[in-house]
Computed example of a mutant assay.
Amino acid sequence: MGAALHLAHVTELPTRKRKRKGGGGGGGDVYDQIVARVYQDPRMTPEARELILLIAWLTARDPNRFDENGNLNRRWRKRASDILGEYGHGPRKQSRLADLLYADRPRYEQPRSSWDAECAAPMIRRKGSCGQPASRETYTIDPETGWHTSVFFCRRHESWGEQLREQRRREPGPEPIPNAGGLLPSYFVGSDSHTDERLAAWARLYTEAAVWKRDRLWEPPKAYGLCADDWPTPGQDPIPQKARLRLVLGGDLDGPR
Score class of each variant (00 low, 15 high):
residue 126 R to N: 04
residue 52 I to L: 11
residue 96 R to Y: 05
residue 101 L to R: 08
residue 75 R to H: 15
residue 123 M to R: 14
residue 72 L to P: 09
residue 126 R to M: 11
residue 141 I to R: 08
residue 62 D to N: 02
residue 97 L to N: 08
residue 90 G to S: 00
residue 81 S to T: 11
residue 98 A to K: 11
residue 132 Q to V: 12
residue 106 P to E: 06
residue 64 N to I: 07
residue 72 L to K: 15
residue 97 L to R: 04
residue 84 L to S: 08
residue 87 Y to D: 06
residue 57 W to A: 04
residue 93 K to N: 00
residue 121 A to C: 10
residue 141 I to S: 07
residue 141 I to W: 09
residue 140 T to E: 14
residue 65 R to C: 07
residue 129 S to C: 10
residue 103 A to D: 02
residue 77 R to P: 10
residue 103 A to S: 03
residue 71 N to W: 15
residue 139 Y to D: 07
residue 132 Q to D: 11
residue 55 I to P: 00
residue 107 R to S: 05
residue 119 C to L: 05
residue 67 D to S: 11
residue 71 N to Q: 12
residue 101 L to N: 10
residue 94 Q to Y: 11
residue 122 P to K: 07
residue 112 R to C: 08
residue 63 P to Q: 06
residue 108 Y to P: 03
residue 119 C to P: 07
residue 127 K to R: 13
residue 77 R to T: 08
residue 94 Q to N: 08
residue 53 L to F: 01
residue 87 Y to E: 01
residue 137 E to F: 03
residue 71 N to C: 13
residue 91 P to T: 13
residue 127 K to C: 07
residue 109 E to G: 03
residue 111 P to K: 15
residue 78 K to Y: 12
residue 112 R to N: 06
residue 75 R to Q: 15
residue 73 N to S: 09
residue 75 R to S: 15
residue 53 L to S: 03
residue 125 R to Y: 05
residue 62 D to T: 02
residue 55 I to T: 09
residue 128 G to Q: 04
residue 59 T to P: 04
residue 57 W to D: 05
residue 79 R to L: 06
residue 109 E to F: 01
residue 141 I to P: 03
residue 109 E to N: 02
residue 112 R to S: 14
residue 58 L to E: 02
residue 63 P to Y: 12
residue 55 I to W: 07
residue 66 F to V: 01
residue 68 E to K: 15
residue 115 W to E: 09
residue 111 P to W: 12
residue 64 N to Y: 05
residue 96 R to P: 00
residue 117 A to G: 13
residue 71 N to I: 09
residue 89 H to T: 11
residue 104 D to L: 02
residue 62 D to W: 02
residue 135 S to M: 03
residue 91 P to H: 08
residue 107 R to H: 11
residue 135 S to W: 01
residue 81 S to Q: 11
residue 105 R to K: 13
residue 125 R to A: 14
residue 80 A to S: 14
residue 75 R to I: 15
residue 140 T to Y: 08
residue 82 D to E: 13
residue 123 M to C: 01
residue 134 A to N: 14
residue 135 S to I: 03
residue 89 H to A: 09
residue 108 Y to R: 08
residue 76 W to F: 09
residue 106 P to M: 07
residue 127 K to N: 13
residue 96 R to D: 01
residue 52 I to M: 10
residue 59 T to V: 09
residue 66 F to Q: 13
residue 114 S to C: 10
residue 110 Q to C: 12
residue 140 T to S: 15
residue 133 P to K: 00
residue 132 Q to S: 10
residue 106 P to W: 10
residue 131 G to K: 03
residue 90 G to D: 05
residue 94 Q to R: 09
residue 95 S to A: 04
residue 73 N to E: 11
residue 86 E to C: 12
residue 134 A to H: 11
residue 124 I to C: 06
residue 84 L to D: 02
residue 61 R to W: 02
residue 53 L to E: 01
residue 120 A to V: 13
